[in-house]
Design a protein around this nucleic acid. Structure first.
Lengths: 107, 107
DNA sequence: TCCATAGTTCGATATTTATCGAAATTACGC
DNA sequence: GCGTAATTTCGATAAATATCGAACTATGGA
C-alpha cells in the first residue's frame, strides 16, 4: 500500500489548520490522539461510518495536523506535534488545553 | 441604534472561534485589530464590498472574538482579548504570533 | 485460495458559507 | 427635514463541506 500524502512543513498553512480543528469530530480526534499518542482509525470512530471518519482523517492529514502510517492492514495516526510546535508555537497546546477547566470544572 | 448582540463568555465555543479565524479575510481583520487596538469597518475593508465585510464582522462577533460598539454612525471594532485570554489562554497569542517568523522570514 | 478486517474512494444529497449588488437603517450636520 | 456617510439586511448564486452507503483495495491469515 503506497504511503499517504502529507504536506511538507512549508506547505502547512495556519488557516487550514484552524479550519480542520473547527469541527467537533476532528477536534475530538486530535484531543484523543494527544491523549493516546497514536491510534488506528477504527479506534477513534464514535459509531460513525468509516467513510465519514476517513474524510475527517483526510482533512486533518491534508492540513498537516496528523501523520498516517500504515502498519499492515491498519493505519496508525499520530499528531505531527513537532512540526506544529515549530510552525505555530503554543497553538496546539492552547487548543488542547482549552476547556480543561472553567467550562464546567467544579461542582 | 440598538447595540449589537455579543455572546456571553459562557456561550463562546472554541470550535466557532477556530472556524471564524480559518478565513484569510477574517484572520487579517483580527490581526489588524490586534495591531490597531480598534478600528471602524471601513478602515478594515480591503477594497471588498461593505456587505462582504459586514458578513465577516458578524462571524467574528458571533464567535465572540470581537466587540462592536457604535460611536455615532460608525462602528468601532475591537478584540475581546480579555475574554479570549481567560477562556482560551494562549490561543490568540499563538495565532497572532504565527507566521511572524519562519514562514518567509530570512532571505 | 477464500475470507474477514481496515480503510479509501466514489457518488449523491443536504447544509453551510462566501461574495456581491441593491435596498433599507441610523446618525450627523446643515 | 435633507443629503451624505457608515453599515446592516436581503436575496441570489456559486462554491465548499459533511454525511453516508456501496463498491473497491490491500493485508493477514485459516
Amino acid at each position: 500500500m503506497r504511503p499517504m500524502k502529507h504536506p511538507l512543513p512549508t506547505d502547512i498553512v495556519l488557516e487550514r489548520v484552524l479550519y480542520a480543528l473547527s469541527d467537533p469530530v476532528r477536534l475530538d480526534i486530535v484531543r484523543r490522539l494527544d491523549h493516546l499518542g497514536e491510534a488506528s482509525c477504527t479506534a477513534l470512530d464514535c459509531g460513525r461510518p468509516k467513510s465519514t471518519m476517513s474524510h475527517h482523517f483526510r482533512v486533518l492529514r491534508d492540513a498537516g495536523l496528523i501523520r498516517t502510517e500504515n502498519d499492515g492492514a491498519t493505519h496508525i495516526n499520530s499528531l505531527r506535534r513537532a512540526e506544529m510546535d515549530q510552525l505555530f508555537p503554543g497553538l496546539l497546546t492552547a487548543i488542547l488545553q482549552a476547556g480543561r477547566d472553567g467550562e464546567g470544572g467544579s461542582r
